[in-house]
Structures are given as C-alpha cells and as structure tokens.
C-alpha cells in the first residue's frame, strides 16, 4: 500500500514537473519545474531497482545540467523584471520538493533495511563485494566487458564535447 502511494507520488511529481517545464511562462520557473521532474524520475529509478541510475540522475542532472540551465537563464531577456518576492506556489512547491526528498530517503532506507541481513552476512567476508544493491555491480561488469567499446567512445565524446565547448566560447570572446 505504502509502495503504491510512493510510486504514484513519484509519477505525479514527474508529470507535473514535465508539464510545468514545458508550459511555464517564466523561464526560471520552468527550469525549477524541470528540477522537480528530474527528482521524480530519480524516484522512479529506485522503483525500477536501479539505484545507481538514481544516484547518477541526482548528481549529473540535478547537480550539473540543471544548475547550468539555471545559470543560462541569465542570458535571456525574458527573465528581466521577474518575481521580486517568492510567490505562494513557489513556496508550496518547495515544500513538495522537500517532501519528495523525504520520500526518496525513506524508500532508500526501506531497501537498506530489507537487505540489512544480507549486508551483514557479506561484510564478514573481506574481499567480496556485497551483491545485493540491485544491478550496480552488473553494470560495472558490463561496462568493462561487452560494453567496453561504447564506454570508450562515450569517454571520447565527453572529451570532445568539453574541448569543443571551450573552443566555441573562446572564439566568440569579446575583443579587448
């Protein structure tokens, strides 16, 4: 029952965030709604037994891409004269976000408690990784096994993107 409730909260938050990000008039608010949506997807990953993906979602998307997008809204002239004081709905959505974070933390704790016995058992054997946290270990095995070439290509793609971004920015730097 509580599982269903958590699941549908995550779904609702994701869908609300997505629709808000697509339709909000103020770009800054739209970016904040995108953050809500990304957090909801992280919760869904937990339900899919993909705790590694949930962590990556929070670190890369919410911690990296969303912050970049929030900075980028400063480039836009739409944002001029935006809200001076926090409107009620923004405060309410902050509350909802805090509640969602609590729900995700609760779900993590639930998983941890469910596997506590296993973890204790494996901890007594040094040199052996506990294989209870979903498919995280399997992902590692795949990345350095059958998926090694895509893994290296992804590394090259990231390097190229980084170098390209720096090249574009320096090419258009204002002349002194």
């Amino acid at each position: 029952m509580i599982e269903n409730l958590l699941f549908w909260t995550c779904c609702l938050v994701t869908v609300t965030g997505a629709i808000g990000a697509a339709t909000m008039r103020n770009l800054f608010h739209a970016a904040l709604m995108l953050g809500l949506c990304l957090a909801g997807v992280a919760g869904l990953y937990l339900f899919l037994e993909a705790s590694y993906l949930a962590c990556i979602q929070v670190i890369v998307y919410i911690g990296g891409i969303l912050v970049l997008v929030l900075f980028a809204t400063l480039f836009s002239s739409d944002i001029k004269g935006a809200v001076q004081r926090t409107p009620l709905w923004l405060r309410l959505s902050g509350l909802v976000g805090a509640g969602l974070a609590a729900l995700v933390a609760g779900r993590l704790a639930q998983i941890a408690i469910a596997h506590a016995a296993n973890l204790d058992r494996t901890r007594s054997q040094p040199g052996q990784l506990p294989d209870v946290i979903d498919g995280t270990r399997a992902i590692g095995d795949l990345l350095v096994g059958p998926w090694l070439v895509p893994f290296l290509v992804a590394a090259m793609l990231l390097t190229a993107a980084l170098v390209g971004a720096v090249a574009i920015v320096t090419r258009y730097r204002r002349k002194p």
Partner: peptide
C-alpha cells in the same frame, strides 16, 4: 545520460 551531459555542455 552521458550523451545528455555532453549535449548540455555544447549547447550552453
């Protein structure tokens, strides 16, 4: 997710 990160850097 990796592709999304690379795309965000270049797009910005």
């Amino acid at each position: 997710i990796v592709v999304a990160a690379a795309e965000a850097a270049v797009a910005l």
